[in-house]
Amino acid sequence: MTRLIALLLLAGTAMLATGCNTIAGAGEDISKGGNAITNSADKAK
């Protein structure tokens, strides 16, 4: 479980670093990262 969380955080950081050109873009990227974490958590149940 710890490995999954670390992987998700790393992936989210990479998405933010590559996709944020504006504040609006940052909000969208954060939202996508949250959705990815939620989906992964649901699959892990």
Rank of each mutant, 00 (worst) to 15 (best):
M1K: 00
M1I: 07
M1A: 03
L4M: 02
L4H: 04
L4R: 01
L4P: 01
I5N: 00
I5H: 03
A6E: 05
A6Q: 07
A6R: 10
A6C: 04
L7G: 04
L7F: 02
L7C: 02
L8K: 01
L8A: 06
L9E: 03
L9G: 00
L9T: 03
L10E: 01
A11E: 05
A11G: 06
G12P: 08
G12F: 03
G12N: 03
T13A: 15
T13Q: 09
A14F: 14
A14E: 15
A14G: 14
A14Y: 10
M15P: 06
M15W: 09
L16Y: 08
L16G: 06
A17Y: 01
A17D: 07
A17W: 05
T18Y: 04
G19F: 02
C20W: 03
C20L: 06
C20S: 13
C20I: 15
C20R: 03
T22D: 14
T22Y: 09
T22G: 08
T22K: 10
T22L: 00
I23W: 08
I23R: 12
A24P: 05
A24L: 08
G25Y: 03
G25A: 02
G25M: 01
A26K: 08
A26R: 07
G27L: 06
G27V: 10
G27A: 07
E28F: 14
E28D: 08
D29C: 13
D29H: 13
I30R: 05
I30L: 14
S31I: 09
S31A: 14
S31N: 12
K32L: 15
K32D: 14
K32Y: 15
G33Y: 11
G33M: 13
G33Q: 13
G34F: 10
G34K: 11
G34E: 08
N35L: 12
N35P: 00
N35A: 14
I37D: 01
I37Q: 02
I37K: 00
I37E: 00
I37F: 09
I37Y: 01
T38G: 08
T38Q: 05
N39E: 08
N39W: 07
S40A: 14
A41G: 01
A41I: 07
A41C: 02
D42I: 13
D42T: 15
D42E: 11
D42G: 03
D42A: 13
K43L: 15
K43C: 13
K43N: 15
A44M: 15
A44K: 11
A44V: 11
K45Q: 05
K45M: 09
K45P: 00
